[in-house]
Simulated assay, not measured.
Amino acid sequence: MADRQEKQGASMAAPDFIDTPQGRRIAYHMTAGAGPTVVFCGGFKSDMEGTKAIHLEDWAKATGRAFLRFDYSGHGQSSENFLDGCIGDWTNDAFEVVSALIPGDVVIVGSSMGGWIALNLMARFQLKIAGFVGIAAAPDFTEDSMWAGFTPEQRDELAQNEQLALPSEYSDEPYIITKKLIEDGRENLVLRTPLTLDFPTRLLQGTADEDVPVSVAMRLLEHVEGDDIRLTLVKDADHRFSTPDCLKLIEASIEEVLARC
């Protein structure tokens, strides 16, 4: 469920850091501007230097909007080892960064796993959330995609070795899934209990996404409750969702949510 991304290369400035109560050092870039602050939550094994994060920072600077992008622990320039992390840790990272840096309302933009992180934040913490934009949001993927897709032999290997190596579409190195990731994921599922999104919510999904199929977006749409929730399907868009037209749609969706806050 890695978030396919392309490196933009436009951000050369060194990040700032915040130390969390859990002892992790989280890298971030904060753009000053008008609130509500737009917060970008990236995907699994992604980082804040990806195309969408950098594009939205440029958009925020051009429009005078406050914007935050950051790396979860074990990702990008933050501390810790990726294999030691899990959904609960990365949710806590997001909460600590947002609560420490942003005193007012936030609009969260969650890409792939970042969509699950965002929904987990909404379910667990009392953040001042004014809106949500999900891009190929992937709630509960460790259970419904990874675990559900494992063979009995793979499940046995994971239980015995506490790790499972899978072929990766993104590099020559194998894709390591840990027992901790799967077990912790079960403690953070958001599609098994009622979830109300009482703020403007826009879900964006490509029909050619091979990592997060349209069925996931439909299930999320049917599960959540709220008066202002819309799903937009983009024919032939893949999981990157980073073509010029897709980036414009993300901008437009954020602006629509901001206008309705």
Score class of each variant (00 low, 15 high):
D172A: 12
L204N: 08
D172S: 14
A94K: 09
A94Y: 02
D19N: 12
E187A: 14
K7L: 12
W147A: 10
F40P: 01
Q163E: 13
S145L: 12
G74L: 09
E57V: 00
K7I: 06
V234E: 11
E6P: 00
F241Y: 15
L249D: 04
R219T: 09
F241Q: 11
L127E: 01
M1A: 14
H223W: 13
G104N: 12
A13C: 01
A100T: 11
F199Q: 01
E173A: 15
L204A: 07
M122A: 08
D198Q: 10
M30H: 14
F150W: 14
E187G: 13
L204P: 06
R260H: 12
W116I: 08
A259S: 15
A2N: 14
R240E: 10
V190A: 04
A13H: 06
R260F: 00
P194G: 05
D71K: 05
Q160I: 10
L83A: 09
G9M: 07
M30Q: 14
Q126R: 10
E187C: 12
R25P: 05
G88M: 00
Q205T: 01
Q160H: 08
T63F: 01
W147H: 02
L191A: 02
K128P: 03
L166V: 09
G110N: 05
P103T: 09
I176T: 13
S73H: 04
R65P: 08
L56V: 06
G74S: 08
E187P: 00
F40M: 13
E57N: 04
E157F: 00
L203G: 02
C246A: 12
R25E: 03
A14P: 03
T20Q: 09
A66D: 07
D16A: 13
F95A: 09
G149R: 10
G114I: 11
N161Q: 15
D89W: 14
I26C: 06
G104F: 07
S78F: 05
H239W: 10
A159K: 15
W116C: 04
A252N: 15
I229C: 04
M122K: 09
P152G: 04
